[in-house]
Design a protein around this nucleic acid. Sequence first.
DNA 1: ACACCAAGCAGCAAT
DNA 2: ATTGCTGTTTGGTGT
Lengths: 246, 246
Amino acid sequence: MWSLEDYCTLFNDAFRRRETIVLACRCKIRYSGRAESFLGDGDRVVVVKSDGALLVHQPTGNAPINYMKPGCTHELRVDGEECHLHTSHVLEKEKMEISIEKVYFLNSHKLEDGQSIIVAGTEEDMANMLMQQPELVEEGFKPVNQEEQTKYGFIDVLGIDKAGILTVVECKRYVADLSAVTQLRRYVEKIMVSKGISKVRGILAAPRITDNAKQMLEDWGYSFKSIKPPKFMEDFDKKQRKLEGF
Amino acid sequence: MWSLEDYCTLFNDAFRRRETIVLACRCKIRYSGRAESFLGDGDRVVVVKSDGALLVHQPTGNAPINYMKPGCTHELRVDGEECHLHTSHVLEKEKMEISIEKVYFLNSHKLEDGQSIIVAGTEEDMANMLMQQPELVEEGFKPVNQEEQTKYGFIDVLGIDKAGILTVVECKRYVADLSAVTQLRRYVEKIMVSKGISKVRGILAAPRITDNAKQMLEDWGYSFKSIKPPKFMEDFDKKQRKLEGF
DNA sequence: ACACCAAGCAGCAAT
DNA sequence: ATTGCTGTTTGGTGT
């Protein structure tokens, strides 16, 4: 069994060597920075990464209960019967103190990883699908050049309907809600102003829409088109080539 | 040194006992579910929690590069020269396979934690501050009963200005952007319809606002009030009492 | 269960 | 650096 001093030496040396450190312990946590927080005694896993990021995970749940951003300094010190991990981010004026009552295990290793993840099935993929298969939006719909869109902002798909009316399409991967409608409305109005056109259509493309959102959409004269986002591994080839280019 | 079979036994037994497991390894990862992803060879920390949640962390950055939600089943199996961690969430039709080339360390421990975090300085705290010190919003501003708000949705603060005009206040903890303005606009319109009033004011309360948002705010006849969110540890006493009540 | 929204959101790309 | 926006967002609250 190691002493508190041993743990401190192990930890501080590992961090100095930019190893990634994992520590399971019983602790309480105080944080002060963009907000302030306190977390009473319990068992957690603490991860300190080579870039100084720190994560605290409870034994259940997806998200960290506390964290510090990359760029932090860390020091583990003995304080009576406990160890205290002092973490601070000088630039961001944030600090954290983890009071460690008991260490269950501590391990560290130099980790190297230069890989980027490749994801298929995002909102961007959905927009690309509609650019390539515009008939999915509506019969006779013609997307305009993607270059031209960017001038008007972050519009997912811009096109012209079969009657020649400029049409903004906003894509959502999941259920479209009120904020999706207000977002569409904002884009439509932006286009009307910047192009000086009084008639611009808005289409919300998503697998589903909430009742309230549907109502608001119709009140504003926009329409909904049910579209499932793509989820093809085939897309990987294209993206992989793009990544390998760098 | 342990064999691949040893690691599998350790891992599978630990998960069966609902321990929290930490594994540092060189691996590649495939995920399929709400989207699909692939991550090539690199060193990562894998955390498997007692509720079945799984996190994969690269040696830098704040967020997990891959994850699975609570409720997953996990099995680590030997496959030739490698171990494969098969993770699946039957209900959500999600699955992940982590191909492990090399294990740096593996630890597990039964962790217990029933604590909830107490946070001060949230948007809700900001709204409460304005309810208690309405003069911060504007001279002569009087908040209306908080009960009454809930009928009309998630409005932060509803009140009456010194001229007797109903006023919606939307709070933002940080820089208010375009979506904050559209949100305010949605609430103001909702109130106008539900109360049958043609004149309702809107105030955006935040420490700062972006230029575009300011523009849109003024175009719509709303106003901005620079207010810093509260950040008092004193609030902890109140919240703690509330939590202890359970 | 669904709808809506905040988050100490994070991360990314464009400006 | 700031702005705007997506996210396998997560997590919480109210209906």
